[in-house]
C-alpha cells in the first residue's frame, strides 16, 4: 500500500465505530420497520412473519368493512392533518414569541447575553414530562390560569383551557420555544448594527428597518428555528397525551397506540415511516433553500 492509500484506509477505520452504530441502531431498525409495515398483523401483537400484506398502508385512507370490502375513511387523515396543523400553529406561535425574545437578547450588552442564553436553556434541566404536568396544573378548571381569571372577575366560570387543541399548542410552543429562540438569536447577534444605522440614515423608520433589513438578514435563523420546532412538534407524544385528551391525538400518539393497546404493529410501522417521510420532506425543503442561497449571505 502506498502511504496515501494507507492513510485513506486508516481514515476509513476511524469512522468504523460510528458507521457500525448507525447500521445497528438506525439502518437495521428502519429496514425492520419497513418490513413489518408490509406484514399481516397478529392480533395478539407482533406480526405473522412472511405473510405479506398491504393492509397497513391501505388503512391510511380506507376502512375495511365486515364483508371485507374497502370504503373511504378519513379517521387517520384527520389525525395526520391535525398533527401538521398543530405543528404549524406551534411553529408560528414560537416565531411570534421567539423573534422578539431573540431580538431583545441580541441587543443586550455582551455580559448579559451569556446569562440570557443560559436562562433560555434552563427549562431543559427539567424533564419534559414534569414540565407538561406543570401545564396541567396551570390550565385545569380550577388551576392557576382560571383561578386568576375568576379572581380578577373576567369570567365567573372556569374556561375550558385543558384537553383541547389550545392546550396542546400552548404546551408544544412552550416545550420547543428555545429551539426557535437560539438560532434566531445567533443570526441576529451576527447582524452588523451599522446596517441598522444605514437604514435609519436612508430614511427608514424603525418598522421599515425591522421589515426591510433586520428580518431579511435573520431569515436563515428563522428557517432553522422553524424546522427545529416543526419537526419535533410533528412527532410529539408526551404533550398531546397529557394536555390534549382523547380528541386531539397526534401522529405520535397514534403510533404509540398501534404498538400498545391496538396491537397493530404493521400500521404503527407504516405510520412511523410516514412521519419520517414528512420530516425528510421538511428537511429537503430547507436544504434546497440553503443551496439556493448558497454562497450568498
Amino acid at each position: 500500500m502506498t502511504p496515501a492509500r494507507r492513510r485513506t484506509f486508516f481514515n476509513f477505520w476511524l469512522i468504523g465505530p460510528a458507521a457500525l452504530a448507525i447500521i445497528i441502531f438506525m439502518v437495521i431498525p428502519l429496514a425492520m420497520m419497513a418490513w413489518i409495515s408490509i406484514q399481516s398483523r397478529s392480533y395478539g401483537g407482533g406480526v405473522h412473519w412472511g405473510e405479506l400484506s398491504a393492509e397497513a398502508w391501505l388503512r391510511f385512507l380506507f376502512e375495511r368493512n365486515l364483508d371485507d370490502s374497502l370504503s373511504w375513511s378519513v379517521t387517520y387523515t384527520v389525525i395526520i392533518i391535525r398533527s401538521i396543523w398543530l405543528s404549524l400553529i406551534t411553529t408560528v406561535l414560537s416565531l411570534l414569541v421567539g423573534f422578539p425574545t431573540a431580538f431583545f437578547m441580541a441587543t443586550r450588552d455582551r455580559k448579559w447575553r451569556t446569562l440570557l442564553v443560559f436562562m433560555v436553556t434552563l427549562p431543559f434541566w427539567t424533564n419534559l414530562l414534569v414540565r407538561n404536568y406543570a401545564w396541567i396544573l396551570i390550565l385545569r378548571d380550577y388551576g392557576t390560569a382560571n383561578g386568576l381569571l375568576m379572581w380578577l372577575g373576567i369570567t365567573d366560570q372556569p374556561l375550558p383551557l385543558l384537553h383541547n387543541q389550545f392546550a396542546v399548542a400552548v404546551g408544544l410552543t412552550y416545550s420547543f420555544l428555545p429551539f426557535m429562540v437560539l438560532p434566531i438569536y445567533s443570526s441576529l447577534e451576527k447582524l452588523d448594527l451599522r446596517l441598522v444605522e444605514a437604514g435609519f440614515d436612508l430614511y427608514a423608520s424603525r418598522w421599515q428597518v425591522l421589515r426591510n433589513i433586520i428580518i431579511p438578514l435573520a431569515i436563515p435563523g428563522i428557517i432553522a428555528g422553524s424546522i427545529l420546532v416543526f419537526i419535533p412538534a410533528l412527532g410529539s407524544y408526551v404533550t398531546p397525551e397529557l394536555l390534549g385528551g382523547g380528541k386531539t391525538l397526534m401522529i405520535g400518539n397514534l403510533i404509540g397506540h398501534q404498538f400498545g393497546a391496538a396491537r397493530n404493529w404493521p400500521f404503527g410501522a407504516a405510520l412511523g415511516l410516514f412521519l419520517l417521510a414528512l420530516v425528510l420532506l421538511a428537511m429537503t425543503v430547507y436544504a434546497l433553500r440553503g443551496r439556493e442561497r448558497g454562497g450568498k449571505p
Binding site: D192, R194, L195, E197, A198, F200, D201, L202, Y203
Partner: peptide, 17 residues
C-alpha cells in the same frame, strides 16, 4: 436620523448584503 436630510457614507460601507 431618518428625518434628517443628511446621508452618511460609513467607514465599512454598511451595504445591505
Amino acid at each position: 436620523p431618518y428625518r434628517r436630510p443628511v446621508n452618511t457614507v460609513f467607514q465599512s460601507y454598511a451595504l445591505f448584503p
